[in-house]
Simulated assay, not measured.
Amino acid sequence: MAGTHDITRGTDGPAAARRTVPRLELPRPTGRHAVGVRTAHLVDDGREDPFRPGRARELMAQLWYPARAGAGQVPGRYVSDALSPLVVDGWEEEPGASGLPHGTAAEVLVHGAADAPPAPDARGCPLVLLSPGHARYRAELTALGEDLASRGFLVASLDHPSDAAGVEFPDGRIVPYREPDGLADGDTGDLSGRYLAVRAADLSFARARLSGPGFWWHALLDPSRSGVAGHSLGGAAAAEAMRLDPGFTAGANLDGTPYGDVLRTGLERPFLLCRYTPDDPGFPEETQAREQLWSVLRGPRHQLLVSGGGHGSATDLDALAGPLGYRAFTDAEDYDFALGSLPGGRGVEITRACAGGFFEQYLTGGQDFLEALPPEVTVVG
């Protein structure tokens, strides 16, 4: 990852205000397959968008899959030029605090080849859906998604419009993040609960659509094996989606506070709680929610704690923070919460080992993933 290059600010500053940004590249996938990447526009004609009444619910998905390796393939893009400013703004506590050009996120180098043909031996692949954190973006889980694809999974990371930093559709529309005034069905529950119900429905719809016979990768897929994982709010949504949709075989929550009806009903299928931050005495309700979910998980269940981790250690920020100079423009307490004390990139490695090993065990019949946990990980349940 050595080397630097200049990223032009474009309209957000004069050339003299450019900042030289180190090369930004995500860690290489660890599996045996090359990785391909495509996007998909998914429209749920049977569901009105609760944040945009009168329109069908639309989603955008980033798709990673085992691909045929070949010369001359063009790498995919992390995010588009249009979305890059929204991502950069999300990295900053105060607008402009980092001095990063607004095009910085579009320059992140990934390892998936755009529209690469599937690997010839890619057959019977399980599907894994990923859901990012609240007000984040689907590409933030690229390091995990690419790694799962290199291990033989079909992977889809979803943007949840109006709950994402921004979602760009094929016709050029961009739906920015916004807090809703209320849902179309008149729900008066808490704001997080409103997002949770919509996300869970998004995940269930996407699983059905991506597993259907009309989708392009259907010949590669084993529709009987599907996993779901998410970070933060996405982790809570993963559990709730499993409650609603028996088509999900296994699920994982990456440092998300669980809530929703799943705390009452529980689950009978394999579930992983991977915690990167210890219990906070200032927020006892989060500890109580985690304990409540744990008590109603009746299938194979695993709870792991990552020593030295932060809330964002499961995301791409873990690998990008160093080159971005994230520590310099982030409050020390906020930095510690976000990334903890792990060396840059180590959180991604740990996440790949834990989540990847979990899904290999429960979706492909692999070895007991607890036998190969990184040293920073403790089994707490």
Rank of each mutant, 00 (worst) to 15 (best):
A252D: 07
R243S: 11
P300N: 06
D245G: 12
L317H: 04
R264I: 08
L263E: 07
H311S: 11
L297Y: 05
V306M: 09
L317M: 07
V262S: 08
R290V: 14
E286C: 02
R269I: 09
Q303T: 04
S307F: 06
C274K: 00
S295V: 00
R290N: 11
Q292S: 14
P258F: 03
S295K: 10
G256Q: 05
R264F: 01
L293C: 10
G282V: 10
R243W: 07
G309L: 06
G309C: 03
L272S: 07
L297V: 09
L273F: 07
V262W: 06
A289D: 11
S295T: 11
T257M: 14
R275D: 11
G282E: 10
G260N: 02
L305D: 05
D316P: 06
G308Y: 11
G247P: 04
R269T: 12
P258L: 04
G247I: 06
N253A: 09
D316F: 05
P246V: 10
G247T: 06
P300W: 06
G299H: 00
A250I: 15
L254S: 03
N253G: 01
P284F: 10
D279H: 11
Y276R: 02
G308N: 07
D279P: 11
S295I: 10
G266C: 04
S313P: 00
L293N: 14
L317P: 05
L273M: 15
S295N: 14
T287C: 00
L273E: 10
G308D: 11
Q288M: 09
E285A: 15
G312K: 12
E286A: 15
W294G: 15
L254F: 04
H302R: 13
V306P: 08
A250G: 13
D245W: 00
Y259Q: 13
T277N: 03
F271N: 00
A289H: 14
P270C: 05
Y259S: 07
A250E: 09
T277F: 03
